[in-house]
Nucleic acid binder design. Structure first.
Lengths: 328, 328
DNA sequence: GTGAAAGCGCTAACAA
DNA sequence: TTGTTAGCGCTTTCAC
């Protein structure tokens, strides 16, 4: 199998009887070349099936027209929309998106970012758990946009944590719940701390108690473990950091014969694939992730340090219901 | 925000008081340099936080140590294991994996592959639906490995379609089903045709009838549509191209008040996230995808045109049961 | 063992 | 408008 030498600008130039720079211009800056040459060169390039070498193109200019999207956990269906949205927007702007998964490990994210540094024009970091100062440092090398993480001076897109917490607490309190428990995720996740703070605030305002449990791994397995802790805490409603956990909770409660929502109500975050057909269907908070993906790439390319707050919406399904033993 | 000039080999060379070529060697071919210089240069490089520019490194050598994984549909949870496995193996071999999603569009896959051509040392194509000749052509540029697609002379990893079909048909026939229907996926998918052929073969051998319906989009929505067609076909058991479809089928049947498995049994393929907690839990065929991902990268890097057939395993859950009106 | 120099394919001054 | 030339940062001959 000979991976034959690729067609280069020089080949095209020779074939077309012009200089390489002319070919370069005809292809990347068509307006700076006469109509005749342009047509001719482009025809030759097409005939030879010329493909620009992106490495070579990127070396002198320092621009590769590639963007990196670093996700925290690619096995979390929540990321789907983000990926699709980011890809759409990147493609529209003529960029190729490369995707990498840091498996929830900040060090791995750092490693991946460093490796890709010379190959991409910028990064979108989704739910990054790296310390602030590392992000600042990374921005020194390339533009950055953050999803579900706020940091002064950085472009970012976050879902409205305060409003989602308000909706959750409002919903549960309306059903008579006064003893809540929050099943927390990783403490180095921005959303974790925002969610907890907002839930605590709104609970207090509504006259309900809420306990912070965990941290637990933000996975199905983490939810299974969290269920037992939540149950032991004596709350009447459990709010999970994300839907993966919430589904794990549901699974464990079913296994232990705890009726949901009869004995215990459960709420998640993200409205992932599966949330509407698990058993019972999960009450959770949805946000427009695909839009988030698009917006992130937009902000990144414009390099505007804006923070976009996306609305959230509580999807009430059957994992939540009236409290059994209201103390009212 | 000044995206400061990165530290280059030249910087290190100047600082270390040696030639760039020596630094290059000390870093990439440590054995070709004296112990003293090696230590010294490496220390300086570390101190300056030198990061090789991958573009520049790849230009002369033509090798980038990046691999592309092109998936057909990143929103299909089936891909998770593949991605993780491929990433693991790539990382172990010192390669970075870039991921791209072709959304089920062969033309988009072609476009992505072409764009990445100069940036990667090889491709893993997962469930590619491109015509054979295009794959042959692509291989002319870079090494290729295929997942769930067999093509003479190409390294590939496939799950055992014949055996999975045998297990499915055996299971259904044992439950008394004699009238089956297959809800097909895209006709340009290798697995689609293999599955159909094997299902037809095993049904015939077992004395059962099977109808091929579709093609339907291999998505949840496709399954919803397929359910009605399957129901109208009068079969007692439905076998779907994948689990996404099967879950859509389940959802639609529930909506229409058709009891599963009372009135109709349903089987899927892939055992994706959600298959065990949908309602009712789905009987489906599992295969070791993570291993597939690892094997694919292994074959790709070795450039061995082997075909690895991975075993499959029927996971019987409650979406299948005895036929209601056996004709026995 | 180390350095000087050529060149990977492309872009971007600068000249013509 | 087009051609010439000098790099981009690195690897790799080829001398020394």
């Amino acid at each position: 199998m000979d991976h034959g030498r690729a067609v280069t600008l020089e080949d095209v130039a020779r074939e077309a009887g012009v200089a390489v720079s002319t070919v370069s211009r005809a292809l990347s800056r068509p307006e700076r070349v006469s109509a005749r040459t342009r047509e001719h060169v482009q025809a030759v390039a097409r005939r030879l099936d010329y493909r620009p070498n992106l490495l070579a193109r990127g070396l002198p200019s320092g621009r590769t027209r590639m963007l990196a999207l670093l996700v925290t956990d690619i096995t979390n269906p929540h990321q789907f929309g983000l990926i699709r949205g980011a890809e759409t927007q990147a493609a529209a702007a003529g960029y190729t998106l490369v995707l990498a998964d840091s498996r929830g490990l900040p060090e791995l994210e750092a490693e991946l970012a460093a490796r890709l540094a010379s190959s991409v024009d910028g990064y979108v970091l989704a739910s990054s758990r790296r310390p602030d100062d590392e992000l600042v440092e990374l921005r020194g090398r390339r533009p950055l946009a953050l999803y579900n993480r706020e940091l002064a001076g950085f472009p970012s897109v976050v879902s409205d944590q305060d409003d989602s917490s308000r909706q959750i607490v409002g919903h549960l309190v309306a059903l008579g719940h006064r003893e809540l428990a929050y099943l927390g995720g990783p403490r180095n996740a921005w959303a974790e701390n925002e969610r907890w703070a907002a839930l605590a605030r709104h609970s207090r305002a509504a006259g309900a108690e809420i306990a912070r449990l965990g941290p637990f791994p933000p996975t199905l397995e983490g939810g299974v473990a969290a269920a037992d802790v939540g149950l032991a805490a004596g709350a009447t409603a459990l709010v999970a950091f994300n839907d993966l956990m919430a589904i794990g909770v549901l699974r464990r409660l079913e296994q232990r014969g705890v009726a949901v929502p009869g004995a215990l109500s459960v709420v998640g975050h993200d409205d992932i694939f599966g949330a509407d057909f698990c058993h019972p269907p999960l009450t959770t908070v949805a946000s427009p992730v695909e839009e988030a993906g698009r917006a992130l790439v937009g902000l990144l390319l414009d390099n505007r340090p804006d923070t976009l707050v996306l609305p959230t919406e509580l999807r009430v399904r059957t994992s939540t219901g009236p409290v059994r033993n209201s103390r009212g």
